[in-house]
Design a protein around this nucleic acid. Structure first.
Lengths: 337, 337
DNA sequence: TTGTAAGCGTTATCAC
DNA sequence: GTGATAACGCTTACAA
């Protein structure tokens, strides 16, 4: 069943059929009706290969996910899938290792799939600086800010990581904590890790709290195991701290286990704060205190911006979505005991 | 850059170029070398649309994932992606709601994407019975057994859910437990839920343990929240039990939180066993006791079987991968106290 | 408003 | 072994 068959069946020419099916102008109401009906009746499915071959690009939207064990991104992919399903752009999701070069991968996929737009779930400034100029379709960087990159086809929707971390530390300090440890990503590589770290320092300075980067910080990857290992290292160094900030909920979970294996209780001995606000955190014992990102708004705005850039053109936009500090059971007031 | 350009550049005709690039016979060694080199030098990328338009089907492999919050499937998708990346089949991953009809979706995607093979991550017998005959490419059902369905293009690789659950209950009984509760999926719909439930009953009968389906079982969905809610319902009914079996680790996590909110400790008051063996379970406090599925072998064999069926034809195969009962911290011997 | 026809980049069938 | 050339199903000037 091709548009040729449809043309024969309806008595119109292929051009008219094509125009009718694609909602192009210059088709009489009647023709459009007849053709659409015939298409539905015969279960016609447009051959996407032919279409894309002719149009020189796919109509698809690409999602490049940085980091496979990032649960927040999984959540986002789900939401994005739902949103995009309402349009008729096919969605291609591609998972990259946390320390792969997501932009280079994007460039490659552009050649292979010729998408109409890309959503980068996570990304690092230096990768964008190095290779993003090779991409000329609308893109949105989700969860990291790209406003300072000044690419006019790169928008971004993000949480203000620096401010959020700063607030989280402020909150901990308000609870009476003075000795901190932080575990997170590799700041030399991950902007997210760097910004969250800087936010903490900002708060520490404001409150005159000392923090030794060498001794009180461990930077690795965002995963359960990394959280566990990093915390273990901190503990083995013999550092004493009453509050531990993990730059991701998954790390916080690993951290809590490591503390426990070291004979420390949460929150009695150490308060732990994560980052992300994963649904999982609400079911843990203790419930995880965390900096909750607005996952749904962030996903939603990203898709909206991408679609708008794809369809109406327009300049890149950079937005920030709110965060919330959730004080739950993994943190406590220091003078409680 | 097209094969035409390549032809001009090398002095050969497009036909020879095409043959060389596709490893077809009837190309001289020299021609092949020259052409491959020219292709690499110029960064040539085959236009898949043209190729597939001509060949009348894509070369892609499709993965239909049933249930978006199933972490084990996420893990599998990752492994599968790695495996398939070594071949040059593109991989398309499609996430379906837990109670969507995955086979109908597969049929639709077959029309749209014309894949060469499908991996179903999870699936229900009745959906396959109803519509699988519409699919005529090699498929593998992963994590559910399809041997009794007798489709000759449907293989399967699974854990023996019934036996695994039975063993899990045997183990709990060996620890001295006699009063059980089970939370899981909707047995009317989910084969997985049904089989795991039947396995439990089998063990109960063997050991002469009474179990009231109405009062001691709650069937909903596989998610944190569902696990929480189901457990809450059980508790509100006033049922007393010393062991709770959750048919999925995510449910077990929700369950533990619900128990705790009800003033019950795990494992002191109630032993909890999950199913799946998610990495996460090892970081929880208490570490989750569970029936661990062989995620990696299961994924691996699935891909191997699919590729073999796609390339060499051959009949459907049905394999089972081993499971392991992990006794960790969420279960205890009943006479310990 | 509609139809005709020229390609899009590839593969496959010929003839050489 | 190799090279023309005709499809594959679609979009889009251009013509009518």
């Amino acid at each position: 069943m091709t548009i040729k068959d449809l043309a024969k069946k309806t008595g119109y020419g292929v051009a008219t059929v094509s125009r009718a099916l694609n909602n192009h102008p210059n088709v009489s109401k009647k023709a459009r009706q007849v053709i659409i009906k015939a298409a539905q009746d015969s279960g016609f499915e447009m051959n996407q290969n032919a279409k894309q071959l002719k149009q020189q690009h796919a109509t698809s939207i690409l999602v490049v996910v940085k980091g496979t064990s990032n649960e927040m991104f999984s959540e986002m992919v789900e939401i994005i899938q739902g949103l995009v399903a309402k349009t008729d752009y096919p969605l291609i999701v591609d998972y990259q290792d946390e320390d792969a070069d997501e932009v280079l991968r994007g460039v490659q996929l552009c050649r292979e799939k010729k998408p109409k737009g890309i959503l980068f779930l996570g990304g690092n400034r230096q990768n964008f600086l190095a290779s993003f100029h090779k991409i000329d379709i609308p893109c949105v960087l989700v969860s990291n800010d790209a406003s300072e990159l000044h690419f006019d086809n790169l928008s971004s929707v993000s949480t203000d990581d620096r401010q959020a971390s700063c607030c989280a530390m402020d909150a901990l300090i308000a609870l009476g904590h003075r000795k901190f440890a932080i575990i997170g990503g590799d700041r030399a590589v991950s902007d997210t890790a760097r910004l969250r770290y800087e936010g903490c320092l900002q708060s520490f300075q404001k409150h005159n709290i000392s923090f030794d980067d060498d001794l009180d910080y461990q930077g690795t990857r965002f995963s359960y195991q990394a959280g566990y290992d990093a915390t273990r290292k901190l503990l083995l160094k013999g550092r004493k701290f009453t509050a531990l900030f993990a730059e991701a909920d998954v790390m916080a979970i690993g951290a809590i286990r490591a503390l426990r294996d070291h004979g420390l209780r949460v929150p009695e001995d150490v308060s732990v704060v994560g980052f992300d606000g994963l649904p999982l955190g609400g079911f843990l014992v203790p419930q995880l205190s965390t900096v909750a990102q607005s996952v749904k708004p962030m996903s939603q705005r990203s898709v909206e911006i991408l679609l708008s850039c794809m369809e109406k053109g327009g300049v890149a936009r950079h937005e920030t979505v709110p965060f919330t500090i959730w004080q739950r059971e993994s943190t406590r007031r220091l003078d409680d005991i």
